[in-house]
Amino acid sequence: MNVPWDRYQSDLLAALLKTLEYTILGFLGAVLLGLLLALMRRSTTRVVRLPAAVYTELFKNVPLLAIIFITYFGLGSTGVRLSALAAGSLSLVIFYAAYLSEIFRSALGGVPAGQQEGAQALGMSRLRAFGQVILPQALRLALPGTSTMLVDLLKSTSLLVTIAAGELMSQAQLISSETFRAMEVYLVIAAIYFAVCYPLSQLLLLLERKVQAGTPLAPGRRRRMAKAKALLQAGAGA
């Protein structure tokens, strides 16, 4: 008997959405925490720098699966019961923030010191200089590494099968145990991961290329450039 895939269609769709939900929650959280950690590590104050360094070294050197078990089963055994969604997302955030903080730290360090001075000399506040001058350049430097991490994170959501998180791999396990067609089921699931991850990687590469080429992507920037262009051309004929 073949696997009755049409019967599992809606379950698979729900599982795929769950996978994407974990990916988005995990990634957003990891980016925010990673950025915070990177900024802390660039601080001149030791008491700010040190905890961030300890955090990064700690979670870079512990397997994600161990973090998932600790947040779900470990905390559960001490009475702090997190849902699979909370424990799963939290684990992804904790783990990937450590890696992203390293990427962000090196990207921030890659922006030349003269940029800060250039912005300051124009009367920008520290915050403005960071937001308008330093961060946009750092993000460009961080983009390739960050893209890789996003795709990696999406694939790592499959580890959440161990806490029955309802994502793709959990669904695969369920179908497999109902149909006893492990090879077919897991091949299909692998193909679904590929069908999501490959276009995502390509899209991120395209984004990288556009950003590298300086293509204005933000609507405000496009408007500004169009207006400047129009004014320049108007004057060229005069």
């Binding site: 003269g114 124009l122 920037r221």
Partner: peptide, 15 residues
């Protein structure tokens, strides 16, 4: 110390 992520004209606009 121009801002390399911006065009010449945007460098003049930003501040």
């Amino acid at each position: 110390n121009l801002f390399p992520h911006l065009t010449a004209i945007e460098n003049v606009i930003l501040a």
